[in-house]
Design a protein around this nucleic acid. Structure first.
Lengths: 329, 329
DNA sequence: CTGAAAGCGCTTACAG
DNA sequence: CTGAAAGCGCTTACAG
């Protein structure tokens, strides 16, 4: 309610001096400083954020675009980011693209309107060509998702390795008929995963028929559907590489319901190492992603770019992935 | 980059007219409108959000304070809120109290600095006395959490009923030795749950020893700890009412590991009906909360209060809870 | 239908 | 160490 003017009037000083006190500026007489502080307290004065934004040309706000907050992978990612943002004095605007191009773009517009100081992009429904124009409005950092053509800081995992180690594990377990539900190849992240998958297959002279490839599946229900499609096959696969633990969980749960034994009849590799991976029975063999570290680094880099006004200091941080073996393989 | 002035200069019109075009004000000559629109497009002009905030004395931003985003209950709640906020033209600031009083208070300060138009409080670490002073700075809506003394809109569930039906179910299954891990009684929400629990117990002349009460437990690890404490007891309980599915899952998982049969040796009732409740084996008998509806209603009411500048139209919406029976009981 | 002017609440050169 | 003045980029009475 109270403004800087009122504090000034009440203390008989100028708004300038009051402002200096607010901002811990030196060169303010100690006695005056105390008087101003007291008046601020009495009036319950708090500097108006909108005015500071306009004047200072910064918002102390960062937008985080993710694709599905109810996916534990993203809630953990956001959790890490929120913690760092808070420590550094930034607010976090949560933007859910809901796997939708238009929504993602609309959220990116926040940068144009100077509604945020920067955007962390952890969703990538659009191509780089579409995203690129936004880079001139402010800093963008990619997190988890990436694109080879992008010249932005990218904090991400080695998805090629993820595809490779998961598949190799299945092959070492004796499987030669392996299905793949690791995501659409349109997206770089999942394309690399696919390449890792194929690398392991190639090394052992294995191939995969088209019908065993399931693109664009995300949730538990999707996993159930995949199981049914496999279950209906004459000579189906004996193992499947799933692109997420939720998909893997759906497959496993439905398999159990239909008395298909996991891993004996169907081995399953998940991805993410979410809490549920160790909770369900059999536990899901999966690829652990350093989610917390990714979120932390992305936010740290974002804040660094804002504070030091760095121009696209293009750099990529590629974090290692790890195979966690449980009972589903 | 471009400002309204530059658009004005380029078109030879006044900033006033440009502003009218931006805001779809009527009474602008159609031809001029087109010229302005074209200039805006060419310049890539987007109105500066900070200036609009200051001038308009509103931020079109709402803060949501939750206590733990990695808890699926909250990620689903936030998911519903984000959707509605987007539809209504509001941005959502995610504030995680991390079950910490100070953090919660610091987030409430956003209201004082007019950094948000309103706050949805879905975390309640502080007493009502501490929260109350903030109500004069802007609208606050409580969601899920509540306090009898609060005169705010509160969208919440009937926790008394939740405690009652869950416990009654256990009693009907033949249990007389029932433990309780439904949360601290300091908080109204969990106190009501406790009262519902006791109501069911009283009706059947049952009592609970102090050692069987486990306050303030939240996650999977907590559940594991609870199991071990029960497991170590001489004449322990044969059933437990847990305050969340994560706690229940932890109990169940650890029970299995120690060859304690669920539900035969230990029956478990969870709370929330999270996805994992139906994924783990045995499935968790739990209390379904209408999470999506709660989030939706809280956000709708928040937006309504902001848009219509309603003063504390104190009202409470109490949503029904439902028992979902699975295999853990 | 249109524009000049004031003002939202701050902060920052600038001058003293 | 202190203050008057300008200005951040808008929108809205007000006057025409």
């Amino acid at each position: 309610m109270a403004t800087i003017k009122e504090v000034a009037k009440r203390t008989g000083m100028s708004p300038t001096t009051v402002s200096r006190v607010i901002n811990n500026h030196p060169y303010v007489d100690d006695k005056k400083r105390r008087i101003v502080l007291e008046a601020m307290d009495e009036l319950g004065y708090v500097p108006n954020s909108s005015a500071r934004r306009l004047r200072g040309q910064k918002t102390n706000t960062i937008a985080v675009i993710i694709s599905r907050i109810v996916n534990p992978f993203f809630s953990h990612l956001v959790d890490a980011m929120e913690l760092i943002a808070g420590e550094k004095g930034y607010q976090l605007i949560l933007c859910d693209s809901r796997l939708d191009k238009e929504r993602e773009l609309r959220h990116l517009e926040l940068l144009k309107a100077k509604q945020v100081d920067g955007v962390i992009l952890a969703s990538l429904q659009n191509d780089w060509e579409t995203i690129k124009p936004f880079t001139k409005y402010g800093p963008i950092v990619m997190c988890n998702e990436y694109d080879r053509r992008a010249e932005l800081p990218m904090i991400r995992c080695n998805q090629y390795e993820g595809g490779y180690i998961g598949t190799k594990h299945l092959i070492e377990k004796g499987h030669t008929n392996i299905a793949y539900a690791g995501g659409a190849n349109r997206i770089e992240l999942t394309y690399d995963r696919w390449k890792g998958f194929m690398k392991a297959m190639d090394e052992h002279g294995l191939t995969i028929p088209d019908e065993w490839m399931f693109p664009s599946f995300y949730g538990i229900e999707d996993g159930k559907n995949i199981f049914h499609r496999i279950y209906a096959m004459q000579n189906g696969p004996t193992a499947i590489f799933a692109g997420g633990d939720e998909v893997a969980a759906g497959i496993i749960q439905e398999a159990k319901r239909f008395h298909c034994r996991v891993p004996d009849d169907l081995a399953v590799v998940g991805y993410d190492d979410q809490p549920l991976a160790s909770l369900i029975d059999p536990g899901i063999t999966t690829i652990n992603q350093p989610t917390k570290l990714m979120g932390t680094r992305a936010m740290e880099i974002m804040v660094d770019m804002i504070k030091n006004q760095r121009k696209v200091t293009f750099k990529e941080e590629i974090l290692p992935l790890e195979l966690v073996i449980r009972q589903s393989t």
